[in-house]
Each structure stands twice: as structure tokens, then as C-alpha cells.
């Protein structure tokens, strides 16, 4: 039998496989294809959900 809490589990919804930015080790920042810093585009971050409390759940605590 599975633990009680897993009776309430649901399939995980993965974030989109690709994000429209890539890490630039020189800048130490993620940048968009047009060279802008992704973190400065709040509308994009809201849309992608990459700053939410469930982002990174696979590798880190969900917080």
C-alpha cells in the first residue's frame, strides 16, 4: 500500500521544456535571444512561472 498522503497526489505538471533565455557565464545572468536580461522582464517571468514556489521542484524543496 502507498502512504496516505500519496492518495492525494496528482501527475506533476512540467514547465515548458525550453525557456527563451540561456545562462551567460560572463554576465552571470540569463539572457534572452535579443540580449536583454531575462530577470528584468517581469511580464515574461510571470508568464513562464519560473519564479514560482513550485519552480525547481525536481531538484529542490518546493517552497
Amino acid at each position: 500500500m502507498q502512504p496516505f498522503a500519496l492518495n492525494y497526489a496528482r501527475p506533476a505538471v512540467e514547465l515548458e521544456a525550453t525557456t527563451p533565455y540561456v545562462y551567460d557565464s560572463g554576465l552571470q545572468l540569463n539572457v534572452l535571444l535579443d540580449g536583454r536580461v531575462a530577470a528584468c522582464d517581469h511580464a515574461l517571468l510571470r508568464e513562464l512561472g519560473t519564479t514560482t514556489s513550485t519552480a525547481g521542484s525536481k531538484t529542490h524543496f518546493d517552497d
Binding site: 525557456t19 533565455y21 545562462y23 557565464s25 552571470q28 545572468l29 540569463n30 536580461v37 531575462a38 530577470a39 528584468c40 517571468l45 519560473t50 519564479t51 519552480a55 525547481g56 531538484t59
Partner: peptide, 15 residues
């Protein structure tokens, strides 16, 4: 800063 490359939230602080 100790974090992964994909951590765009950390970027907000780096800026």
C-alpha cells in the same frame, strides 16, 4: 552566490 544556472530568481538579485 551558490546556485544553479537556471535560477532566474537569483538573477533578479545579481542585477
Amino acid at each position: 552566490i551558490l546556485t544553479n544556472d537556471e535560477d532566474v530568481t537569483a538573477d533578479m538579485v545579481v542585477v
